[in-house]
Amino acid sequence: MTATPDIGPDAYFQQQLEAGRIQIQKCDSCGAHVFAPRTFCKSCGKDALSWVDISGKGEVYSNTTVRKKPEDGGDYCFALIDLAEGVRMISTVVGTDPHDVRIGMPLRAEIEDHKGAKRIVFRVEEAGR
């Protein structure tokens, strides 16, 4: 395996997040980006995966507002996000009322604290930025 750290990919992904870096895997053989982390390329089957920084750009592929009572934490956004790298991941959109999130909205990834660990979230990219 090329350029794969000596820990499992799941653990490495989270370790990078904790260090403030969002990295996903890219296949050295076919060039496809891969998510969730694994030990081989889903596109070509080769085990030549390297970790690369993402551009941070994305957009909403689909989303929903899960309705919860305020005492249960209130409504929240649950979404599938298309990264510019061509992979689709489950995440959430922060900084915008969940009811205002729309398919196709341009987003930028960031890292936030969540229950004692780091997670990737997305914020709506304002025009001109």
């Binding site: 799941d10 998510f35 969730a36 982390p37 592929y61 689909s62 989303n63 929903t64 899960v66 929240y76 649950f78 979404a79 599938l80 991941m89 489950i90 995440s91 959430t92 398919i103 969540h114 229950k115 660990a117 997670r119």
Partner: peptide, 24 residues
């Protein structure tokens, strides 16, 4: 399931997945 750990931080629920299918 192996991929669930990457979904859990976002509070997945069954209806939410089907809702995203419907919205798309």
């Amino acid at each position: 399931a192996p991929e669930v750990e990457f979904e859990v931080p976002y509070k997945p629920m069954l209806a939410a997945m089907y809702a995203m299918v419907a919205r798309r």
